[in-house]
């Protein structure tokens, strides 16, 4: 198992390098010259000419040198400074990342605790009323964008019942209940939108697994159907479902960016949107990098879960 983990982590290195190249290049592919924008937006006096800024930002060096310098800085934990606030990007990330992480984790918990039980139920009651309702619900969740649902939740309860979801952010450590009360609505909305595909996948896989010979063996032992499902089918069914959850990681993060905006959650999504509007490139790069690494880490966790679920992977 240990060598398995080490192998998986080593396998991440090339992907990590590739991700950094993409992040580095993408910012330089954005149309418009970075310095023109900065000159215009930052309203820097014309006395400052391009060459000075280029030199200050290191943009006068050859592109590969720029990349290595950038990577070198990252390795030393330096992601640059915000062009507007002049605070280190790492500091801004340290403030916002945990908030987004919390929202994502809560959403994932909601998604799994909705998707898996309903998916199993749907499979066990295939083609009954309950199955149809569950499947229609998941189709609905798939079709409705969560930002739209988010807007509805903001607007209608306040019109009808003069109730609006709390929009005041409180750090978790300060007041966990107030924090959760604020996070609850966006986490549920994000979780529900993620649950749709997972639920359908759980149902499909469960139906597939329940047809397997080893399930017949389990029934031939005299086990009750719920033990057959929970002990013999669930783990086999979760192997592909977990993969799917990993593939949904970008969706989770993308959804978080939008819902943070609607529900005034001061997370990385809010930071990113602000930075994009202000062309605060070091911040944008920093967020991209963190998102990229987060997606890789999520997939690492998926791989490790795989090893836990499937003995063939472990050995």
């Amino acid at each position: 198992m240990h060598t398995f983990i080490i192998r998986r982590i080593l396998a991440l290195l090339p992907t990590l390098i590739f991700t950094s190249i993409i992040v580095f290049a993408s910012i330089r592919l954005i149309p418009g010259d970075v310095i023109d924008l900065m000159l215009a937006q930052n309203d820097i006096s014309t006395g400052n000419d391009r060459a000075v800024i280029e030199a200050a930002l290191g943009l006068d060096k050859p592109i590969y040198m720029q990349y290595f310098l950038w990577v070198g800085d990252i390795l030393q934990g330096d992601l640059g400074r915000s062009l507007w606030q002049n605070t280190p990007v790492t500091e801004q990330l340290a403030l916002t990342l945990p908030i987004t992480f919390e929202l994502g984790a809560l959403a994932l918990i909601v998604a799994l605790s909705v998707a898996i039980p309903i998916g199993i139920y749907s499979a066990m009651k295939q083609d009954t009323m309950g199955d149809y309702i569950a499947r229609s619900f998941s189709l609905l969740m798939l079709a409705i964008p969560s930002f739209w649902l988010g807007t509805l939740v903001m607007v209608f309860p306040s019109v009808w019942w003069r109730w609006a979801p709390p929009l005041q952010y409180t750090p978790f450590l300060e007041d966990p209940l107030a924090n959760l009360a604020h996070m609850f609505v966006p986490a549920v909305l994000l979780g529900l939108s993620l649950s749709a595909v997972t639920m359908r996948m759980t149902r499909t896989m469960m139906l597939e697994v329940l047809r397997q010979d080893y399930i017949r063996t389990a029934r031939a032992k005299g086990l009750q159907e719920n033990i057959v499902v929970l002990r013999h089918a669930l783990r086999n069914c979760m192997i592909p479902v977990v993969t799917l959850i990993g593939l949904q990681a970008p969706l989770l993060i993308g959804g978080a960016v939008i819902l943070e905006q609607i529900f005034v959650v001061p997370g990385m999504g809010s930071l990113l949107l602000e930075a994009v509007f202000q062309r605060d490139y070091p911040v944008v790069t920093g967020v991209f990098l963190v998102v990229g690494v987060a997606i890789l880490l999520i997939n690492l966790v998926v791989d490790l879960t795989y090893g836990f679920l499937d003995p063939k992977v472990r050995h």
Binding site: D213, T217, R219, G222, H232, R235
Partner: peptide, 24 residues
């Protein structure tokens, strides 16, 4: 019937490769 299965009547199947649960 469940109480009889595996206790008083047991069954062995044709496909040894797929009749055992791969994750247990």
């Amino acid at each position: 019937i469940r109480n009889i299965r595996g206790d008083r009547i047991a069954m062995i199947f044709q496909e040894p490769m797929s009749s055992l649960n791969p994750v247990l």
